[in-house]
Amino acid sequence: MADPNKVDPIHQFAITDIFSIGGEGAGFNIAFTNSSLFMVITVLAISSFLILSTSGRGLVPGRLQLLSEMLYEFVANMVRSSAGTEGMKFFPFVFSLFMFVLVANLLGMVPYFFTVTSHIIVTFALAMLVITVVLVYGFMKNGLGFLKLFVPAGVPGYVLPIVIPIEIVSFLSRPISLSVRLFANMLAGHITLKVFAGFIVTLSSFGFVGWLGAILPFSMTVALTALEFLVSALQAYVFAVLTSMYLNDAIHPSH
């Protein structure tokens, strides 16, 4: 049972309690898990980096301040280009989402670290948050005019009975696609990495030939690690871009 060569690629996603507030006796039980810990670490890392690096308020930025400014301008340009100037009121929201997903993804790449975004409930909650903001703001700003979102302009009347259900289904599938895309990417990436890294351990236990054979999965692991870093950043970008585009729908519902 305690086979040292047995690698369990799923174990990295296990949630373990670090401590819990309350308990069975108190009538409530709030567990602080490794997932919670890494959420807190993510938030602390983002906040402390952005706040400390800009504390000098240098007119000529240092390296760290420049990085903060580049992140700011990157997300600001993204929001402005997809949702227009009016969408800039959602800039802090999109920025927080982007940074949270990005840093959570990147922290997950550190060995032994837990990947917050590899849990569907987290990505789904973020996606639902986005859709809720879109819905609430869309109805607040446009009233029932927001429903025009489902009626594409310039479509002849007799096609509408087909188009409207399609639009509604596509709208409803947004939180699912948004959350599953991120979750599946992170989950699959980490499992693949773990499996290939596991091959190295398994093969190297077969002696010298095994060591030679382990070169292949080792190079795969190196390549996959690079790929995963790319995916981490890319998925955060995709998440933020789609959020901006959905927010654009809330601001300008008629296409």
């Binding site: 949630i15 919670s36 927080s96 987290v122 909650a125 948050l129």
Partner: peptide, 18 residues
């Protein structure tokens, strides 16, 4: 637990950012 801590941490992040 995840939802709770996500809500808390993301809210904290949003406030700190904005």
């Amino acid at each position: 637990s995840q939802l709770l801590w996500l809500a808390l941490s993301f809210a904290a992040l949003y406030i700190l950012m904005s």
